[in-house]
């Protein structure tokens, strides 16, 4: 006799993994389009965002169906975590779409003559997304915990890039429109890293039943 509930849990997990692989691909494409000034790739990436929206809705429906069956223990944590991870993946998709739009516009303009640490920031953010999703796949809370402090490095790079672009705009007012595109793209990468961190925190909760979000609040 099939265990229908366990089959439902496995289906939820599979859908989430599928959504995660789409989100990761979307971020990779958007960043690649930005770095390589690839107009066509930017358009393709932008066109794929709706898939993540669809996944988010489907995963919520599956999770709500499972919640009506009152899962407990690990299953309960998995269902609640799945809803949160899918929301973070959907937001990652939104940020990737923003990057793709900026990549599309920037690819039509002359390059800005400034050296930014954006490739490093993008590599860090992408690695955080990949590692967070891997930690979910392998239910590896130790790996998930190592992702969390990496967010600070991305934040610092964003500030540095922001300052460099502001300075460049002051000195080269004709580049303001293009520099603003880069500021938005960098901010989106910073947000992607935030969402990767959120996913890692959810993985820790899934594995250890420890809520490690907002340590400052808990210390009060």
């Amino acid at each position: 006799m099939e265990n229908h509930f366990e089959a439902g849990i496995e289906n939820l997990r599979q859908q989430l993994l599928l959504m995660a692989s789409h989100a990761e691909k979307l971020v990779n494409e958007a960043v690649q389009a930005l770095m390589q000034r690839d107009h066509d790739l930017a358009l393709r990436a932008k066109a794929n965002d709706h898939m993540l929206d669809q996944f988010e809705i489907e995963i919520d429906e599956l999770a709500i169906q499972l919640l009506t069956k009152a899962p407990l223990a690990t299953n309960l944590r998995l269902v609640t975590v799945a809803m949160k991870i899918s929301q973070n993946l959907e937001r990652i998709g939104d940020e990737a779409t923003k990057i793709a739009k900026r990549a599309r516009d920037l690819s039509q303009e002359p390059p800005v003559k400034i050296t930014l640490d954006l490739p490093r920031m993008a590599a860090l953010a992408l690695a955080m997304v990949k590692d967070a999703l891997d930690s979910f796949v392998h239910r590896d809370s130790a790996a998930a915990r190592t992702i969390i402090p990496r967010d600070k490095e991305v934040d610092a790079l964003n500030k540095q890039i922001h300052a460099a672009l502001v300075e460049h705009m002051v000195e080269n007012p004709d580049t303001i429109a293009r520099c603003l595109h880069w500021i938005v793209a960098a901010k989106s990468l910073e947000r992607i890293a935030d969402h990767a961190k959120n996913i890692a925190e959810e993985v820790v909760y899934l594995c250890e039943a420890q809520d490690i979000r907002h340590p400052a609040v808990k210390a009060v």
Partner: peptide, 16 residues
């Protein structure tokens, strides 16, 4: 007990 039981037998029982 219902979110993070310490024993596998408890986990298996409450998970049906």
């Amino acid at each position: 007990i219902f979110t993070n039981p310490a024993q596998k037998r408890t986990e298996d029982y409450v998970s049906g």
